[in-house]
Design a binder for these strands. Structure first.
Length: 422
RNA sequence: GGAGAGAUGGCUGAGCGGUCGAAAGCGGCGGUCUUGAAAACCGUUGAGCCCUUGCGGGUUCCGGGGGUUCGAAUCCCUCUCUCUCCGCCA
C-alpha cells in the first residue's frame, strides 16, 4: 500500500510510476473517492461531536437530578442522521480501500524502464558457463535413471508435481540444509519454522491479496485458509502489528519451507522438468530494517543468496529487473539466474526485493524512532537463497559427467557422504 | 469432542452504563543528586485518522463483527483466539 498522502499530494508521480510499470489503475476514480471521503468524514465527525456533547449534558443533568426530557427530545433525530452519514462514509471508504489495495509499489530511481523481461539488465556475472566434451543432457534425462520420477508425481497429483527417490531425495535435503546452515552460521540469520497455511489477512499484509488471488491455492472450508506461495508471507508477517524498538533492528530471518503456486496463466510454459512446479521448496531470507539502511540491506541480502551459488560453484548472473517485470510489492528487485547447460541458458533461481514501507504499511509493522519518539514504518526485504528444486536442477546439469553420473559439489559432500551420484 | 475461565496501552493489571483513552505497578524518556554509574526523588510517556500555515481543535480505537441506549471498556448476540480440566490422537 502506498502512503495515501503521496497519492494525494504527488498524484503525478504516482501516475508516472504506473505508466513505467505498464499498470492500469483508475486514478481519477480514486481522487474522486478521496474527495468524497474527506467531506463525509468531516460530516460524520461533526455529528459524532454533537452526539457526544449532548450525551455529556444528559449525564450532568441526571447527576444533578434535573429533568432530561427536553434534552432527549433535542437529539431525537441525531441518531438517524449519524447512521446515514456513517453508512455513506463507510461505502466510500470501502470502495477507496479496495482501489488503493490494487496500486503497486513505487519504483526506485535505479530501476531501468522497460516493456518486458527482455529489458532486464545484467548487473554482473560470476563464473563461466560450464564446458563439456560431450553433449550435456538436461535434468529430466539425467534424473530418469537417478530417481527423478515425473510419472509418479503425475499419478499422485497431476501435472507439475514430481517424486524424488534415493540419492536425489537426499541431495534435495542436503541442499536445503546447506543453505540454512550457511545463512545461520555465516550471515547472521535466525532460523524460523512457520505455518505453511495462513489466513487471508496475512496474505493481504505482504501484498498477495487481493490482486494475486489467482496464483494461490485456497483451502476449502470455513476458515479462509491458503497454502503459502512463499515463506516471505508468514515470515515477514512475524512483525505485523508490532512496534519494534530501534535496537531490535535489523531482524534477519531464514526459513526453509514448501511453496505452493497454482501457476494460473503459465499454461504451456516450462511444462518439461521441475523448473515450474505447483509445489517446491525454498530457503527464504527476510530482513526487517530501518528505512535508512534498506538499500544497503538489499545488496547484502542479494550477496547472501549469491554466496550459495558461489559455494556450489554454479555460474550465474545478477539481473536488475526492469519496471515492467518488477513485482507488485517491490521497489527494486535483483534476480539471480543460474546457468543451465541442459537448456543452454540462464534461469531464475532467486529473486531479492526491497518493498520499503509497502508491506509494512499493509501489516502495520513499525519501529519507534528515538529522535521523534513516534512509531515509523520499517522497511521489509525478502529473497530466495535459494529455490531448492531449481538448485537441484542446476547441480544435476552443471555437475553431470559423460556416463550420466553426477559429481557432488565439494560444499555438499559432507552432507551427502559421497563424491558422486550414480 | 465435553466442562469451565479469560482477551484492557510496550508489559503486568484495575475498571458501579455518564466527567474513562482508561487506576496502579513495571518498562521507556527527561531532570535532580553523583567524578561516573546505581539507588532514591520529581516530571513525562498509547495508536490511527480529519480540520488547521501554525498554535490548536475534533474523532475513532479496551480481541473481531453486530445490537440495546441520549450515552458502552462496562449490558446482549455472534465469531476468533488463549488458558485450565477430562477424553482422543501424531
Amino acid at each position: 500500500m502506498l502512503d495515501p498522502k503521496l497519492i494525494r499530494q504527488e498524484n503525478a508521480t504516482v501516475v508516472a510510476m504506473l505508466a513505467r510499470r505498464g499498470a492500469t489503475v483508475d486514478m481519477a476514480r480514486i481522487n474522486q473517492l478521496e474527495e468524497q471521503r474527506r467531506e463525509l468524514q468531516m460530516q460524520v465527525q461533526a455529528l459524532q461531536n454533537a452526539r457526544n456533547q449532548h450525551a455529556k449534558k444528559v449525564g450532568h443533568a441526571k447527576a444533578s437530578g434535573a429533568d432530561v426530557g427536553a434534552l432527549l427530545a433535542e437529539v431525537a433525530d441525531l441518531g438517524g442522521q449519524l447512521t446515514a452519514a456513517e453508512s455513506a462514509f463507510n461505502t466510500v471508504q470501502d470502495a477507496l480501500q479496495q482501489l488503493l489495495a490494487l496500486i503497486p509499489n513505487m519504483l526506485h530511481d535505479s530501476v531501468p524502464t522497460g516493456k518486458s523481461e527482455a529489458d532486464n539488465q545484467v548487473v554482473r556475472s560470476w563464473g563461466e558457463p560450464s564446458q563439456f566434451n560431450f553433449t550435456p543432457k538436461d535434468h529430466v534425462e539425467l534424473g530418469a535413471n537417478l530417481g527423478l520420477d515425473f510419472a509418479a508425481g503425475a499419478k499422485l497429483s497431476g501435472a507439475r508435481f514430481v517424486v524424488m527417490r534415493n540419492q536425489l531425495a537426499k541431495l534435495h535435503r542436503a541442499l536445503a540444509q546447506f543453505m540454512l546452515d550457511l545463512h545461520v552460521k555465516s550471515h547472521g540469520y535466525t532460523e524460523v519454522a512457520v505455518p505453511f497455511i495462513v489466513n487471508g489477512n496475512t496474505l493481504f499484509g505482504t501484498g498477495q491479496l487481493p490482486k494475486m488471488r489467482e496464483d494461490l491455492f485456497a483451502i476449502d472450508g470455513e476458515m479462509n485458509y491458503y497454502l503459502i506461495p512463499t515463506a516471505e508471507v508468514p515470515v515477514t508477517s512475524l512483525v505485523a502489528d508490532a512496534i519494534l524498538e530501534l535496537n531490535q533492528l535489523p531482524l534477519k530471518f531464514v526459513c526453509h519451507s514448501p511453496c505452493f503456486r497454482s501457476e494460473a496463466g503459465s499454461y504451456g510454459k516450462d511444462t518439461r522438468g521441475m523448473i515450474r512446479q505447483h509445489q517446491f521448496e525454498k530457503v527464504e531470507l527476510v530482513q526487517i530494517v530501518h528505512p535508512d539502511h534498506s538499500y544497503a540491506a538489499l545488496e547484502e541480502l542479494t550477496s547472501h543468496a549469491e554466496m550459495i551459488l558461489q559455494k556450489l560453484e554454479l555460474p550465474y548472473r545478477v539481473m536488475a529487473l526492469c519496471s515492467a517485470d518488477i513485482g507488485f510489492a517491490a521497489t527494486k528487485t535483483y534476480d539471480l539466474e543460474v546457468w543451465l547447460p541442459g537448456q543452454n541458458c540462464y534461469r531464475e533461481i532467486s529473486s531479492c526485493s526491497n518493498t520499503e514501507t509497502f508491506q509494512a504499511r499493509r501489516m502495520k509493522a513499525r519501529y519507534r524512532d528515538t529522535a521523534t519518539s513516534k512509531p515509523e514504518l520499517v522497511h521489509t526485504l525478502n529473497g530466495s537463497a535459494l529455490a531448492v528444486g531449481r538448485t537441484l536442477v542446476a547441480v544435476l546439469e552443471n555437475y553431470q559427467q559423460a556416463d550420466g553420473s553426477i559429481k557432488v559439489p565439494a560444499a555438499l559432500q559432507a552432507y551427502m557422504g559421497c563424491e558422486v551420484i550414480v
